[in-house]
Design a protein around this nucleic acid. Sequence first.
DNA 1: CTTGCTTACGAGACTCGTAATAATT
DNA 2: AATTATTACGAGTCTCGTAAGCAAG
Lengths: 312, 312
Amino acid sequence: MNIQRLRYLREIARRNLNLTAAAQALHTSQPGVSRQIIELEEELGIQIFVRKGRRLVDITEPGQRVLEITNRLLFELDNLSQVAAEHENEAIGTLIIGTTHTQARYKLPNILQQFRQDYPRVTIKIKQGTPEQIAHWLREGQADLGMASESLHGAQGLSSKAWYQWSHVVVTPSDHLLQQRFSTRPQDIKLEDIAAFPLLTYDTAFAGRTEINHAFAQKGLSPEVAISALDADVIKTYIRARMGVGLLAQMAYDPQTDSGLVAISCAHLFSPRTAYLAIANRRIQRSYVYALLDLAIGKAEVLDLRAQALAQ
Amino acid sequence: MNIQRLRYLREIARRNLNLTAAAQALHTSQPGVSRQIIELEEELGIQIFVRKGRRLVDITEPGQRVLEITNRLLFELDNLSQVAAEHENEAIGTLIIGTTHTQARYKLPNILQQFRQDYPRVTIKIKQGTPEQIAHWLREGQADLGMASESLHGAQGLSSKAWYQWSHVVVTPSDHLLQQRFSTRPQDIKLEDIAAFPLLTYDTAFAGRTEINHAFAQKGLSPEVAISALDADVIKTYIRARMGVGLLAQMAYDPQTDSGLVAISCAHLFSPRTAYLAIANRRIQRSYVYALLDLAIGKAEVLDLRAQALAQ
DNA sequence: CTTGCTTACGAGACTCGTAATAATT
DNA sequence: AATTATTACGAGTCTCGTAAGCAAG
């Protein structure tokens, strides 16, 4: 048995059964990959791929089981490299953070600034995606550390810790009607008041958008969502263009930089959201991963998270 | 990276750092193993073994971590072979049962008789040991299926199901004083009555021996254990020799075959024991492993156990 | 006729076993 | 002296890249 074959298998699966693309990604030749896969199938006595003529069109059922085991095996192989890298030099390497726009844009900068001072030779890669994608990257070893909403918590194969809580704010132009009515007593604002205007808010799957929908639905309201976008910067542009009122994460509003816009807290309208930090179970982490976590949640919590992830 | 190197590493660790013994066990040459290990250390940049001159005398701390990951990796490699073997022919293979003497001698025969009829081409290996050893074998992939007392239940890395309950019996020669006093009203027998005689019972770590000690201790009794042995057959021999009264698992006494001996139930003196069946988490099992489990605890329980083990 | 997988072939690397060497017990 | 690990060396195998072939969309 040869590990290279398993690497090829995993890459082909990742590239939607495109052997050519896999070969390129692995910086090797197409025929080499082809032959290794055929030999792997012969060695195991299992047809892994369904072929149509000379194309790979599907994975067989036993092939699927082989793939799952292969992924776990290569995961452990990655762990070996991690131990080696750690031993080599604990302050050099790469740190891949899987996160959503909201965290990357508003919460991470401070932390990363500090982190860069402590570990100047660690290359940081921020990989943005949905919480589901982030969970997937963590499990596959394609990200070291995840930062996102509740859905990370309790996700299969991950261990997580609460990071901080936040709530939503209504953001409007300074001279907007809502602002005139509620600036002095924001606690009086109701969902009905907001629903009277077109909404500008996050895409589903982000920043508590599900939660927003849910809160309105419970009151029997179905506000018009004029525009939904991945990130607050885009949304703010449309707020300025007076296309509706924004419903953003509180972190996304800064009175200093967001001149011309004002925010009205609506913590009482939507249940508070929690952001979570997560790492993959059984994954050997470089020491600086824990150092970064330390900056976010403190030593005690990090130790607990670590124990949790390794015990699984 | 080469899997062979990892196999060598595991085997050396298993053979108490004796490289020569490892090479023999792997049917290969000593120099080959030596060189592969050195190259593995170079490749990882990690000193795995502590050497004293030319002997391996210890595993370094990073080496220990490497070893743990290696074991998990090879475990997944075994899983690959299992899938392949299963695909090859699901009715041929080897089944290794880790069990204690009591189960192997008194409870397994019926089940295995049936199993052999269903799977005549499966070679069964019964590997006897303490529950702790059995748990270790299961985790290491050196046994497929474990059968033993409570300590299997909840052991790290295993999933288990209750199999059956049993209690202890006092076994004496037919004309023994205890027999004369309690044969008609066994419910009246007390720990004090038993403790008056030298005891013949199981070695610690077996068949509820801990439980026996505990029950006596609670009453402030410390009976003389004349002889302790691994198995009931040995103990019965000494009962016949009138060296004391036996305290055995109920399964171990059969009025038919144990002529000259009689048993007095003492279920009311010791809390009932439960025997458990266990398999390793995340281990891919040959189908006949589940077939054997089915004979013991039925389909529904087996499905549950399987789901439990694979979900971890 | 372009994309994509497989077959053919030869160069180079790697693994492994035997024999010899060196360090402990 | 016996046991045990490392070094040296050569045969055999395996892997991989290039070039050519063949099958689908």
